[in-house]
Amino acid sequence: MKQSFIHKLANFSFMIPYLTLFFVFLIGPLIFGLGLSFFRWEMLSPAPPKFIGLGNYQEALIDPYARKALWATARYVVMAVPVKISIALLLAVLINTLTDSHQNFYRAAFFMPAMITISVGGILWRWFYNNEFGLFNTYLSKFFGIKIPWITDPDWAMKSIVFMTMWWSIGGAVIILMAGLKQIPKRYYEAASIDGASEFEQFINITLPLLKPILLLVVVLNIIGAFQVFGQTFMITRGGPEYSTRVMVHYIYDTAFHYYRMGYGSAMSWILFIIIAIFSTLQFRLSRGKKQNA
């Protein structure tokens, strides 16, 4: 009995470093942040933090800038995720038909932009998008006589951010999807070919169903990631024009570190967290439900 206790202690000691960090930097801050969200705390004010219940959450509902930020984030998620996943899937399927050595080469080429840190990517694309001497407009006006207000028009700016993100981050999705494709046994396709199924039919009837678990994972990861977008908008548009690209995380950052409203910032963090949680559980539920039906 005693020995087993010592054993357990020894076993438990493996957990200690992780547990410490887990509670200090994850669970603790999570709870602290939740608590903070019920307080009015202006960091630069001599006034002590004041408990205001759901006041911050109520404010977030009527704050026009919070709404704008939520709208900007929603626009980003709705545009970026489906476009990215479908292009990545198309690329993965197409690349998968090539020879192995070529596959490796192209995979690396598509992933390479992801290695570039966002500030460099942002600087680069800010230049591409520049109205006067940007790469795109220079050639557009040379060959087609048009100019696109990439990042100076509120209607265009978010699309341009999404476009840049495709370049920057599609590689990871392509790689994971290709790995998924590799796991589908070849004989399924062979059997389908013998039955006379076209390549498109094969894609619909074999590839998609068998790829579904991984596809779903990629979708969930990308939705979670898309809700947290920050670097691109911060570097390329600074949230403008007319705050059309100031997304939630950007607004939380501004609220906390430019307007110094810590309680309000925490409340908005939690709102974002809840939105993300709803989406990811929904996704998992959906997949599980489908699996049981199948």
């Binding site: 520049n130 109205n131 006067e132 001497f133 100019k147 207000p149 100076t152 028009d153 265009w156 024009p241």
Partner: peptide, 15 residues
């Protein structure tokens, strides 16, 4: 209009 031009660069370019 503001979206038509990168104003400062435009001046530098002599436009």
């Amino acid at each position: 209009t503001p979206e038509d031009i990168d104003s400062w660069i435009g001046f530098l370019q002599g436009k």
